[in-house]
Nucleic acid binder design. Sequence first.
DNA 1: CCGGGGGTTGAACGATCGTTCGGCACAGGG
DNA 2: CCCTGTGCCGAACGATCGTTCAACCCCCGG
Lengths: 239, 239
Amino acid sequence: MASPEPVAPPRRSRGAPALPATSVVFPGDERTAAALISAAVEVMAVHGYHGTSVRDIAAAAGVSPAVLYHHFASKQGLLATVLDRGMDVLVRATEEALYAAPDDPAARLEAIVGVHVRVHLESQRESLLGNSELRALEAGALALVVARRDTQQRMFDRVVRDGCARGVFTTPHPDDASRMITSACTAVAAWYRPGGPLTGDEIVARYQRVALDTVGYAPVGEPASGSSAQRFGGAGGER
Amino acid sequence: MASPEPVAPPRRSRGAPALPATSVVFPGDERTAAALISAAVEVMAVHGYHGTSVRDIAAAAGVSPAVLYHHFASKQGLLATVLDRGMDVLVRATEEALYAAPDDPAARLEAIVGVHVRVHLESQRESLLGNSELRALEAGALALVVARRDTQQRMFDRVVRDGCARGVFTTPHPDDASRMITSACTAVAAWYRPGGPLTGDEIVARYQRVALDTVGYAPVGEPASGSSAQRFGGAGGER
DNA sequence: CCGGGGGTTGAACGATCGTTCGGCACAGGG
DNA sequence: CCCTGTGCCGAACGATCGTTCAACCCCCGG
């Protein structure tokens, strides 16, 4: 690999290693640490943790392999940082969406489904990593990430159960429907390709809509004849 | 790792390496090849392809590392065999279920959801491998497996679209609902633990039920008041 | 001007990786 | 009886792995 660059000498002007900007890079991070995190997400999402070497990550970040150990305890520590931050971003975004949503089961479900799908669309590589490389985490870091994942699932469970208790959702299996929704939304990161026929907004809207069907959404006050389809889709040409 | 065995000398009585019996082990397989396949599924499902060494697989199969190369071209070839067979089992089972099902969208959807969930429950490790280690496959073998996966998805798409065309399913987004269903059913392999509170049959039944809600199942002939819930659940105490 | 220190480097460590190879054990046909 | 072939083994190959280390560069306070 590492082919010679045809133009522009590899001279690095010091302290500007590579392109940052990922959802797991936080504003307070040092430049090189941010570049390493970003590079790790990029490369590990493709080849996996064990399929990616420290040299691969360092090369993608534009630094020497040894630099990694000045910013992280180990390759494992870098993975732990990425996964922990990724789950943190997801949970926080979901919490905020839930907090801002009105006291209505359908609106709440739409809110958290929207956030969940959007995060998995926009932070696709981080999500992919978080879903496939948990097994590469050592016990301590794994417990932290799993705890956050449970928190995320619990938020969905609560919304669906509440909707059922109020009679707005009619599914006889709230917890299973809830898990099926999160599973389906999480899987978006596995198939979505940025150049596809649907925009992110369209995908989000569709998943929100189908998720409401999944929980058996039946608006209160109206017994609703036929199906619940009429209550939806005021605007927009569906296809 | 290779700790000395305290009792029972490692003497092998030739030609009886280890315990076989996995869904990707076929009847015509030689004993040692079967043991290697079975061991590969077991170990790789836990640590991933790159996280598993040839020595790990050989040890789990009770043979020497060199034996692997008498039955497979390489470690990569062994993975290709496992994944290819796994997808083949899934697609064939779904095809047969579809063939045996009556000409009714709801019954067909129940049939293929049932098979899909059951395969992912009973062949959990193979499924886990197939969902997370496609990236470790080289181009040729990958194309084969991806083609089979597309076939599987197409069967779901066709059933859902047909149900919509007949007015039995009311979802405005058949393809998205279809993909959400397969995603959710596939994810079963990621969370199911054999000792859990629900039996496999119960999980299958619940997923069938929720899947029908997901596509907006509204039985024909009856405009159905309230929700579709009444049409279901004749027997069995739901919870 | 000088001195110090954090960030970076190339080189090297032992360990383990996938793979190969020569030879051994043993069943079956002459 | 021997001879052949098949399946298995231990040992070893070079490559690459994660990690360490001493030296270096360059910015910054004095």
